[in-house]
Amino acid sequence: MATLVSPSPRHSRGLIPSGHLWLPRANLSACLRGTMVRSTVGHPLRDEQRINRFPATPLCSLSWWFEGRSEVLVADRPDTLPGLHSPREDYPGRWVLSGPHTRPSTSYCADPTHAMMVMFMPDALHLLTGLEPEALTNRLVDAQTVLPPDWIAMCEAVQHQPDDAARMDCLEAFLEPRWQACRPTQMLQTQRYGDWAMHLAQRAAVSAPGRSLRQLERRIKRWAGLPLRELRGFGKAEQAFFDTIAADARQGTVRWADVAAGAGYSDQAHLCRVTRRITGYAPQALYEGIYGDEAFWAYRLWV
């Protein structure tokens, strides 16, 4: 079964437990990046604590709500992040499929909510369902309108399981035989974004006739929804994130110039620009938010 990873014990006063991160069983590690489960049931929250901040991501996701519901917060302008008083939109269906996102996103839970987000590698979702991640990029869609019938039956079965462990068992029992039937012969076991982008490029180069740069880029974008350059950018950003956490654990402080150099950025300003584009925040503000703001619970799960 999936492995439950305990959240970091480091929480500032006033923060509730971040939730749980489930890592997939080994034979699904090239298919699933992980599953985030979050419940605010039984926790009193102020209105501003009901906001959820998510970074841009190359992943696709499938989400369930077992109690309560979320709403999308819509920014007034493309260069700003939405806040408590921003316009709200309903999610498009009972179960929601999300494609890769090139911008950070924000949601709001007006009531106590228990939800689960399963994060798929986009090329794996393409192999499993035939869906084109490129057509899902920056979109949220009603899963019942795009997924195959057996997937909808699986969504229904997961919805009615008694607890999170049973939900993960149900999901993985469904995925395992289907992934074994369609997975590539050469798979990458680790799913750090940088390694995955490189592996994807190698697969694209040998998977079909036609090896011009344009043909390779088209193939990668069809599988992953984003161009190779952007996937590599996510790899650098992820490296910077984990380097930040490692530096904090070692010495209790973070030198952003060192993080920038270690992740391959030209300088600290370059790191700042990319971090703002992916998360909406400068590195120091993001760091402070992770350890002091309820809205950043999704980031804390990966810490």
Rank of each mutant, 00 (worst) to 15 (best):
M1I: 02
A2E: 03
S6R: 14
R10H: 09
S18R: 15
H20I: 09
C31S: 10
L32K: 04
L32R: 07
V37W: 14
Q49K: 00
R50H: 05
N52S: 14
N52Q: 12
P55C: 02
A56G: 04
P58Q: 09
L62E: 08
L62K: 07
W64S: 10
E67I: 02
L73F: 07
D76N: 06
P92W: 01
G93A: 14
G99I: 04
R103T: 12
P104A: 01
Y108I: 07
H114Q: 07
A115Y: 07
A124P: 05
G130H: 01
E132D: 12
E134V: 01
A135D: 09
T137S: 08
L147D: 06
P149T: 04
M154E: 07
D164G: 00
A165S: 06
R167L: 01
F174C: 07
E176R: 13
C182Q: 04
P184H: 12
Q189R: 12
R192E: 13
G194N: 06
H199L: 00
L200V: 15
A205V: 11
V206N: 05
P209Q: 07
R211T: 15
R222Q: 10
R222A: 02
L228S: 08
E230P: 03
L231D: 09
F234E: 00
F234P: 05
A240K: 05
T244Y: 00
A247Y: 01
A249Q: 12
V254F: 13
A261D: 07
A261T: 01
S266E: 11
S266Q: 14
S266C: 10
C272D: 13
G280I: 08
Q284I: 07
G289T: 04
F296W: 08
A298V: 14
R300M: 15
L301N: 14
L301P: 13
